Amino acid sequence: MLKIESVQVSYGAIEAVKGVSMEVRAGEVVAIIGANGAGKSTLLKSICGLEPVVGGRILLDGEDLARVPAHRRVALGVAMSPEGRGVFADQTVRENLLLGAYGRRKDPVSVEAAIAREFQRFPRLAERQHQLSGTLSGGEQQMLAISRALMSEPRLLLLDEPSLGLAPLIIKDIFEAIRQLRRSGLTILLVEQMARQALAVADRAYVLETGRITLEGAGRALLDDAKVRAAYLGAH
């Protein structure tokens, strides 16, 4: 579904992503792990059109996205739940979800069905649907960010650090939601610092270090890799 070929992304003279190549097949969960500053979030932003690439190609079902603006990529089936959640703080939970479905606004019946589905996925959102999103807890905001991305009915969901800053019980809920989405057949590209949880849920994974892919393989295989364990899992 997604093929990245020698992609380069720069911030001025600083090359943040250095010729990365990878792929995501339909129905897979693929994880990208790596330290802070490795280029993980920059790579996701380049896929959804928030960072321009200076070299290489990003192909979605064979179509080069290089000149496709971000809003058109949503229409093509790409949606992202960003690092830091990025909820619209002065809008209610329900209004955030409606904004996520903006491209489908001419079909209100299906939009309402999608909202009901997300309230079933995360019952806390249903309880707080008329509450301003800025007053939610961090975990509730993360649930909202994921649900808002799903409101566009994407074929490819990009999740950027969904566990960041959350309590262990909330992290467990978030990863259970990822497993449910996987079972539904949704294709997911997951960037996550909690490497153990990411590798456990992923079909395949890539290790990104200073803008380059240094290792790739099945999620379970990388869990047992000595270098990965030493660098990211606190094991030797």
Rank of each mutant, 00 (worst) to 15 (best):
A16G: 04
H130L: 14
F119E: 10
A38D: 05
P82L: 01
V228A: 06
M194S: 06
D173P: 02
I146P: 08
A149P: 03
T92V: 09
E209L: 08
I115D: 11
A38C: 06
V201A: 01
R204G: 06
G77L: 05
P108F: 00
A126S: 13
T135Q: 14
I171D: 01
A230D: 14
E140V: 13
T42D: 01
I32E: 03
K45D: 09
M22V: 00
L222S: 10
I58T: 09
V7N: 06
A205R: 06
V74K: 02
K40A: 07
A38V: 03
E127Y: 02
E176M: 02
Y11L: 15
E192N: 06
S41R: 01
S81I: 04
Q129I: 11
G56P: 06
V111K: 06
G138L: 03
G165P: 09
K45H: 14
V17F: 08
D61K: 11
L158F: 07
I115H: 05
E127Q: 14
S10Y: 01
A205P: 13
F175S: 04
I170C: 01
D160I: 11
F122H: 13
Q141W: 01
L222Y: 14
L43D: 03
P82F: 00
G134S: 07
P82G: 09
L136H: 02
K45I: 09
G134W: 10
Q142I: 09
Q120L: 04
P69T: 15
V109A: 15
V78Y: 00
R72F: 03
L164P: 03
Q131W: 01
Y102V: 15
S163D: 05
C48P: 04
F122E: 15
V74H: 02
G219F: 05
A70Q: 07
V30L: 12
M1K: 08
F122V: 04
V109W: 07
P52I: 08
H236V: 14
L215A: 10
G37F: 07
A101F: 10
D61W: 00
A126V: 00
L164N: 05
L43I: 07
A13F: 06
R220I: 11
T135K: 12
Q91H: 12
S152D: 12
V87L: 00
E95A: 11
V201S: 01
R94P: 03
L233Q: 10
S21P: 09
A70M: 12
F175A: 03
L60E: 04
M151V: 08
D203A: 04
A38P: 14
M151S: 06
D173I: 07
T210A: 08
R155W: 02
M151I: 13
D160H: 06
L158N: 03
D173N: 08
R179K: 14
L97C: 05
K106D: 15
V207L: 10
S110N: 07
E161T: 05
R72S: 02
Q131C: 05
D90H: 15
N36Q: 02
I115L: 13
Q193V: 01
L189S: 08
A116I: 11
Q197S: 09
P154M: 01
L144T: 10
G219I: 00
Q131V: 08
A26T: 15
M80G: 00
N36R: 02
T210P: 00
S133N: 10
G86Y: 09
I213V: 15
R67A: 13
L60F: 15
I188N: 04
G55A: 15
A205I: 10
F88A: 10
